[in-house]
């Protein structure tokens, strides 16, 4: 098994958090993982991204030039990462902030989700990232929901532990959205 994904968005949209959670969960499932975040000046500019590699074998490069999947939470991220997706790969995009007509590639599988709108329905726009993660998990089954449930405590800082149920609910919501849109 080998899977890699780039997750990108504005700073504050929680893209690093879901990358971290995904990696940690994969580690707990026994995989080799690497989680490479953007840092420093790059973060101050307001965009953040991370590359997650999950593999049953030792990971060589943690840097990925043509990922299996890309999750983009905002328009600049779409522009930057859409061209890199492996042909036949997956593009999850946040249609609350990205007009779908901006998507250029026809050789990738497109999953448009109004992440912010769905999160608002759940009562907290900050859950948009978890909804995206839910969709990725539903689509790829790269790790199980049960494993995420087990590892989320470690990925979230203590002071956010009271939000764990809401986060898990959002992940379920993302999965459900994908099932219903089929």
């Amino acid at each position: 098994m080998y899977y890699d994904v780039i997750i990108a968005g504005f700073g504050g949209q929680g893209v690093l958090l879901i990358g971290d959670l995904l990696s940690l969960t994969a580690m707990e499932e026994g995989y080799h993982v690497s989680f490479l975040p953007s840092y420093g000046v790059e973060m101050r500019g307001g965009t953040a991204n991370c590359t997650v590699v999950i593999s049953s074998e030792e990971i060589g490069s943690p840097v990925v030039s043509s990922p299996h999947a890309v999750i983009v939470m905002n328009l600049p991220s779409l522009k930057k990462f859409e061209p890199m997706i492996k042909p036949g790969g997956l593009l999850i995009l946040n249609t609350s902030l990205i007009p779908e007509k901006e998507v250029k590639r026809s050789d990738v599988e497109r999953i448009p989700i109004p992440l912010n709108a769905l999160a608002e329905k759940l009562g907290n726009t900050r859950l948009a990232n978890m909804i995206a993660l839910g969709a990725l998990l539903e689509k790829t089954k790269v790790v199980s929901f049960r494993s995420v449930e087990a590892s989320i405590k470690e990925a979230l800082a203590q002071k956010y532990h009271h939000l764990i149920p809401a986060n898990l609910e959002a992940i379920k919501k993302g999965a459900e959205f994908l099932r219903n849109s089929k």
């Binding site: 580690m27 993982v33 690497s34 989680f35 975040p37 420093g40 943690p62 840097v63």
Partner: peptide, 10 residues
């Protein structure tokens, strides 16, 4: 280097 410093791994 920065990559090794910032990257998370088991």
């Amino acid at each position: 280097d920065g990559m090794l410093g910032q990257m998370k791994e088991p």
